[in-house]
Design a protein around this nucleic acid. Structure first.
Lengths: 229, 229
DNA sequence: CCAAAAGTGTTATAGATACACCCATGC
DNA sequence: GCATGGGTGTATCTATAACACTTTTGG
């Protein structure tokens, strides 16, 4: 770290807040906690923390996500920075929001209790502290845009997933029904899904074939912009 | 301002840097200055400044834009926050980048000299300080996405503009030729341009009709997403 | 044999693309 | 009358949207 050469005035707390999305097969959910510090102790909140002087914004986001979920190598993207003067009643804090997509099955029940955290469906959001509800809504909006053109939805599903599961995910994200014939034709025509011989048998007698996302094929194709959905 | 309740550790300089776009009828340009402070005095740079403790990020962006251009009520949008630990050699500084679209004719030559500023075509960018070149490239990319779906390109043109001018603008933004018949059909079919009786006569003998962007019509239509171009 | 979910094909429509000629005017 | 840029129409193709029946199999 180089010595600080700028004046020490005008330095500001910078926080990172994480909108963590999960999908349980039915609904799109966000991981919320009860805030563990004053002001606002106990109020519903996103997971967050201050950026340390010797870590980048991205590193802070990874650290904060890890501290709540125990997970690494998670899809994460910077959303927006929130900088209203009085957005945090504890003092001047600028917050850089990140959103993350995790496979909800990877998330341990026990960690939920340790952090007093809960998965909450997006259409049943309680009041959140500060501007966190706005952040969740902005993240949801961004997710909708993004999954339409980028293969990131898979991060919300297990590694092996079925087309009906993928369809349900998109319907949950858009909160709208999607025609399954058009959907599967389009998804498969992108050429980035690898069909497995194995079937998922728990949700129907017939069983649905598993697929995996083929990262390599995708990178070959995606010299910019396939269109999903 | 409420008293600071959080510890004074971990406070960080937060800067705003502005990518200011202009269009001279031919090329898309960015407004660059020679940096006026150490470290990096004299190096090509974006216009920027530290966020003050009692102003929001958006306010800081407006202030900084105004200080360089004298302009108010300018289209401006937050782009991204840049937070690598050593991105600024003068100390730990997180930068929130904003991009602005201005009508280059509104910008006074004299202000250029006062600030040692210059309009530089995007494909002739010199080396810029820190990560500013990345910021310009990210902003250009975002502008491309945005003008495809939102009526913000008009902010780069005079209030009254012709279809050929608008076409040139889009061609400059995408750095690609666009068919003028398809373009004007599509633009006009959106129903957000008002044709004036008056013609622009300086660039052709026949003259091209002026249009103005019809904000009201747009707001009526745009309960989400027209598709431009 | 039946209930439940998986899988599959065709038609209609809208939007995108490609393409070339006439028009109006100042000189 | 001619050079210059402005303006316009049509045909093709591709992508999307709408829509319903057959298949599989565990019980």
């Amino acid at each position: 770290m180089k010595p600080i050469k700028y004046s020490t005035e005008d330095r500001i707390h910078v926080a990172v807040d994480c909108i963590i999305f999960g999908f349980d097969g039915q609904e799109l959910k966000a991981l919320l906690i009860h805030r563990k510090m004053d002001p606002g102790l106990g109020v519903w909140s996103l997971m967050g923390g201050f950026v340390k002087i010797d870590e980048s914004l991205d590193e802070a986001a990874v650290r904060i996500l890890h501290s709540l979920t125990g997970l690494d190598n998670i899809y994460m993207e910077q959303l927006h920075s929130y900088g209203a003067v009085h957005r945090d009643i504890g003092g001047r804090v600028i917050s850089v929001a990140y959103f993350a997509l995790i496979n909800i099955e990877d998330y341990e029940e026990q960690v939920l209790d340790e952090h007093d955290a809960r998965w909450v469906p997006l259409n049943e959001l309680p009041d959140l502290i500060f501007d966190h509800k706005q952040m969740v809504q902005d993240a949801h909006q961004r997710l909708r845009q993004k999954v339409a053109n980028h293969p990131i939805g898979f991060a919300l599903l297990p590694e092996k997933f079925t087309l009906p599961q993928l369809l349900s995910l998109y319907e949950a994200i858009y909160d709208a029904p999607i025609d399954k014939r058009n959907f599967s034709r389009k998804m498969l025509s992108l050429g980035i899904l690898k069909k497995l011989a194995e079937k998922e048998k728990s949700s129907s007698r017939k069983g649905a074939f598993f697929y995996v996302f083929d990262q390599e094929k995708y990178e070959k194709l995606s010299n910019e912009g396939l269109s999903f959905i």
